[in-house]
């Protein structure tokens, strides 16, 4: 659907807020807590498709998103920061939800860092949610993040790793609590490792991955059934390149988390960057998540 950029706000030096509204005031599809939309962002040579969490409430008249300017931008976030202006029209997918709040949890422990705050902003708009939230950010961004969060003992902002005692925090949670975490890979790795160390079962730990696609060595992919060969450049993802040549491979989260874009590898060795495949599946080298993973060999042959 086509949505108009209704407002743009600068949250921190690196994060902008966008309000996306329908032109004719018609109601938007409901976006439950934790959902995201995929934006099609015009680039000089191609269209970028980036996923962003919706931070507004489920039934809000417009979608609000937050976009961090990525240092080595794949293109989308740079355009949204440098060129997007109020009134621009963008193609926006209907909302998808891969990070809905856990229904079985009676309490939620929410841990985020930096832009990882975004999915939780919609959680906090749920009435009556029992939660404890800890958000980590740079000292210069603290004031901006504070404006987004409710005031009270259930929310703590940390501007230094030293003030968050993860182990103690995870140890004192009740049995009916689920942990949800969102932020940079390094942050999530530490949280997940600490949780496992103090005995949290994997079933109660939930992570949201975003912006997973990172560049790497260029490689060539042969798409056997399509009879096509594509060149994946240093700053491109295999999914983006396949879409650029007019193919429509399955995809959903574009961050290596959902499993939707899994393709069969017929030859070559994939370099796995996803969070979906198990260790065994990775070792088998016969499947690839095309949104984030790349190739260890110069060429891959895929069943598509």
């Amino acid at each position: 659907m086509k949505l108009k950029i209704e407002a743009i706000g600068q949250l921190t030096s690196g994060i902008r807020k966008f309000t996306l509204a329908p032109v004719d005031g018609s109601p938007l599809p409901r976006a439950g807590a934790g959902s995201h939309v995929v934006l099609e962002i015009p680039g000089p040579n191609r269209v970028w498709k980036n996923a962003y969490s919706i931070t507004s409430a489920a039934d809000a008249p417009a979608y609000e998103i937050m976009v961090r300017r990525v240092e080595k931008s794949r293109g989308g976030s740079a355009w949204l920061h440098d060129h997007a202006k109020v009134g621009d029209m963008l193609e926006v997918s209907p909302p998808q939800n891969l990070f809905a709040p856990q229904r079985k949890a009676k309490r939620h422990l929410l841990l985020s860092a930096g832009i990882g705050i975004t999915p939780f902003l919609s959680y906090l708009k749920l009435p009556g949610l029992a939660y404890e939230m800890h958000h980590c950010c740079k000292p210069e961004d603290e004031a901006a993040f504070r404006t987004l969060l409710p005031f009270g003992p259930q929310v703590t902002l940390h501007t230094s790793r030293n003030t968050l005692n993860l182990e103690a925090l995870l140890k004192r949670q009740k049995l009916d609590t689920h942990l949800s975490v969102c932020g940079p890979e390094s942050f999530m790795d530490v949280v997940l490792a600490t949780a496992a160390h103090v005995g949290w079962p994997a079933a109660k730990v939930h992570k949201e991955s975003f912006g997973g696609a990172t560049g790497g060595e260029p490689f060539v992919a042969h798409l056997k059934r399509s009879g096509m060969t594509v060149n994946v450049g240093r700053e491109e993802s295999l999914l983006d390149v396949m879409e650029a040549v007019g193919l429509t491979p399955p995809c959903l989260c574009r961050g290596g988390a959902c499993g939707e874009c899994k393709l069969t590898v017929l030859d070559g060795v994939p370099a796995h960057h996803d969070h979906y495949l198990s260790e065994t599946e990775r070792a088998a080298n016969n499947a690839i998540m095309i949104c984030v993973s790349r190739a260890k060999t110069p060429e891959l042959v895929l069943d598509f």
């Binding site: 995870l170 140890k171 004192r172 949670q173 009740k174 049995l175 609590t177 103090v198 005995g199 949290w200 109660k204």
Partner: peptide
């Protein structure tokens, strides 16, 4: 008893 327990219990 379980209502007083914390994460990590088996």
């Amino acid at each position: 008893r379980l209502g007083r327990e914390t994460a990590g219990l088996r």
